[in-house]
Amino acid sequence: MLDRTKSQALPAAPGVGYKAQHYTALTTDPGCVGWLEIHAENYMGQGGRPLAQLRALRERFPISVHGVGLSIGGPDPLDTDHLARLRDLCHWLDPHSFSEHLAWSTHDGAYLNDLLPLPYTDATLARVCDHVDEVQEVLGRQMLLENPSSYLAFDESTWDEVGFLAEISRRTGCGLLLDVNNVFVSAVNLRLDPRAYIEAFPLEAVGEIHLGGHDEDADDHGAPLLIDSHGRAVADPVWALLDLTLARGGPKPVLIEWDTDVPDFPVLEAEAARAARALDRMTTGIAAAPTTGIKTGVRT
């Protein structure tokens, strides 16, 4: 049985993807940053600075563990050794959330260090559900599954992405992680309506929201091709989609991801502050909305 109450939920506050160069800033003056997300695979060493920093940070911040290497969307069986590493990390850290991607990254034992797409069919749906069941069994907790950014579509897909994710959540009981930048990137790339995506999304299952920056490129025919780079500030249309998401789904934990060309902490904090303002607009507009955790980084 899943123990869904084992950890507290993340606060409906802004968080940031943790980078070691921000350690001092975060432990002295984190500003409006209320929680941190770490990439699980960076903390699978035996000791040293990464684990020491994490030990100190978890005393101060709620932590979200975000896996990037489990290959949940792939046809190969899950790597049980890697699942055991994730279980050990979650056991030690007792994070507020664990999430992974609707994507694959391992092929015949070769790990490709990228999040790769899958077709949405009845067969892949069954496979992903089996994998999510296995993860939740081994970790003994609910996981969140994140929507991908897409650069192309599979002709053989018979499900749309929102329906596919909603059905996985319904069958497995997993929560969802809604990456609003990914929604925008995929919508532009595949000529879909991002607002319709958000409006159809089962927001009651969403335990966390991601925001990040993207780059602009073009395809062979000059059509816009957005690349999910996490290397710059969040774009204005993505902030507008966040407002729509919060208006429909209520306050949620909102993460700023900035993984390449990582800026100094004040720049990152300013992005988090923009997310805080979006959340504040929600909580002042909704009478009974929870207000805990929005201004403080201290676990209560």
């Binding site: 650069y151 192309l152 599979f154 002709d155 790339n189 595949l190 879909l192 395809d219 091709l225 690349i227």
Partner: peptide, 17 residues
């Protein structure tokens, strides 16, 4: 079997991956 979502072959969209 890969396209741009509007019927054109994926082309350099695949190259992104």
């Amino acid at each position: 079997g890969l396209s741009d979502g509007a019927g054109q072959p994926a082309g350099r969209r695949y190259a992104v991956y």
